[in-house]
Write a protein that binds this DNA or RNA. Structure first.
Length: 423
RNA sequence: GGAGAUAUGGCAGAGUGGUCGAAUGCGGUAGUCUUGAAAACUAUUGUGCGGCAACGUACCGGGGGUUCGAAUCCCUCUAUCUCCGCCA
């Protein structure tokens, strides 16, 4: 969430910037400033009372020690009314505090000044395009047909075992998954990321830390018995490694990568868009996460973009990079770049990666800080990106690399699949 | 799942009602000494909130209670450890 200090000092600028996200923060923020002012007044008042009580208590102690119990008992009465007062102030203080928190949770991250204006995905800015969009043979098929014919993925079997959106990968289809995961992890390691294997279920606190909670619990599966959530992305457990951490500045940057399955409920979308691998409830993803000194976070973002470009080029897929417009930007992101690959047989672009800088928004929730040059604690910046999400990559690989003799595996991937064709 | 024990600063570890934000040791930082380093010595060294600051205030696993006053007493939750059971 946004830092209260920042809102106190720059509320006009913040309201203006939030408009890029099509978020009207005027009312909430003025309410916030009001509550904050009241809260500080109460604290000052209460601190003075507490000070008084502490002083008196000490005196009582001393009096008892020197045997003057009558005087001590007289003082006791004095603290009675003080305590009533203190309790009252304490109550209104915590009430104000929770009201403030509640409002802060409702305000999205401030978009970077560089974020383009716009309301819908159509307004996203294509900033880069690479790779030939190849001519496919006349009888080119979409991936769900290819997957069925080649017996790579069994969607119906998944329906039987669990439900729609939980496919079963078989034979070379399963091996292709494993190959991609290993390929992505190796590439991330080469780029300096340390691999971790985090839990796939997280507690409530972790959900708050990265911004899935409150309000967005609908996207997550919830194990109510133990109040755990199935992770929608490795971002959640991996970023929460740094919850409540003060890192040494020489430990910057922190670069982690993790392969995990991801679970998304994603209710409410039907039809062609969710066909085959386009949208699943369970899918595999390799995530990259960075914790950075604020000075370097945008450099790190560029580096992450380069990393993902490299992956797509090695997979020989035509892709483009979009800079998300304000309206399409996520709640917690300051800026986001989406990577899309072209699905030849479906004749559309599929999102395969999303790279974001959250600046201090998550760090503030996580209390992820470092000591700056002046010795003060300061919030770090967090970033993450998919590198990459598997299903749509698989879809694009099948569709784009289909030939009359089967599916051709890109050269970079053959050492991992140990086969060069699927037929 | 059953029984018992424990939870204190970066770490180890004292502290069982007031003078405790907390002894001591290790570690960190700065300095003295040294050509330099080590050793030794000296000082300093948690976090949040309010305040320009002085300073005030809160925090001893979390929450609640008793008390004029709680790290210390009571209740409760959670985590860890040991033993038993079960299991991969």
């Amino acid at each position: 969430m946004i830092e209260l200090n920042n809102i106190r000092e720059n509320h006009k600028e913040i309201i203006k910037r939030l408009k890029i996200k099509n978020f009207d923060g005027e009312k909430l923020i003025s309410e916030l400033i009001d509550l904050d002012k009241k809260k500080r007044e109460i604290q000052t008042e209460n601190d003075a009372l507490l000070n008084k009580r502490n002083t008196i208590s000490k005196e009582i102690g001393n009096l008892f020690k020197s045997g003057k119990s009558e005087e001590a008992n007289a003082l006791k009465n004095e603290t009675k009314s003080l305590n009533d007062n203190i309790q009252e102030l304490k109550d209104s203080f915590s009430e104000l505090e929770s009201k403030i928190a509640e409002i802060l949770y409702q305000i999205p991250n401030i978009p970077n000044a560089d974020v383009p204006l716009g309301k819908t995905p159509e307004d996203n800015l294509t900033i880069f395009e690479n790779g030939e969009i190849q001519e496919l043979p006349e009888n080119a098929k979409p991936h769900w047909e290819l997957a069925k014919e080649l017996d790579l993925i069994d969607f119906d079997l998944g329906v039987k075992i669990t439900g729609a959106g939980f496919p079963v990968y078989k034979g070379k289809g399963a091996k292709l998954q494993r190959a991609l995961i290993n390929f992505f992890l190796d590439e991330a390691e080469t780029a300096g990321y340390n691999e971790v294997i985090p839990p796939l279920l997280v507690n409530e606190e972790s959900g708050f830390g990265t911004g899935q909670l409150p309000d967005k619990e609908g996207q997550m599966y919830h194990a109510t018995e133990d109040n755990f959530y199935l992770i929608p992305t490795a971002e959640v457990p991996v970023t929460n490694i740094f919850r409540d951490v003060i890192i040494k500045k020489e430990d910057f940057p922190q670069k982690l990568t993790a392969y995990t399955p991801c679970f998304r409920r994603e209710a409410g979308s039907y039809g062609k868009d969710v066909r085959g691998l386009n949208r699943l409830h369970q899918f595999d993803k390799v995530e990259i996460v960075q914790v950075q000194h604020p000075k370097n976070s945008y450099k790190a973002l560029d580096e992450m973009i380069e990393h993902i470009k490299n992956l797509l080029e090695k997979l020989e897929l035509p892709y483009r990079i979009l800079k998300l417009c304000g309206g399409d930007l996520g709640f917690t992101a300051a800026i986001t770049y989406d990577f899309e690959v072209f699905s030849a047989a479906q004749e559309k672009w599929l999102e395969v990666s999303s790279v974001s800088n959250f600046e201090t928004y998550q760090a503030n929730r996580l209390k992820l800080r470092f000591k700056n040059e002046a010795g003060k604690t300061e919030l770090a910046h967090t970033l993450n990106g998919s590198a990459l999400a598997l299903p749509r990559i698989v879809a694009a690989l099948l569709e784009n690399h289909q030939t009359e003799n089967g599916i051709k595996i890109p050269k970079a991937l053959i050492p991992y699949t140990k086969f060069d064709t699927i037929n």
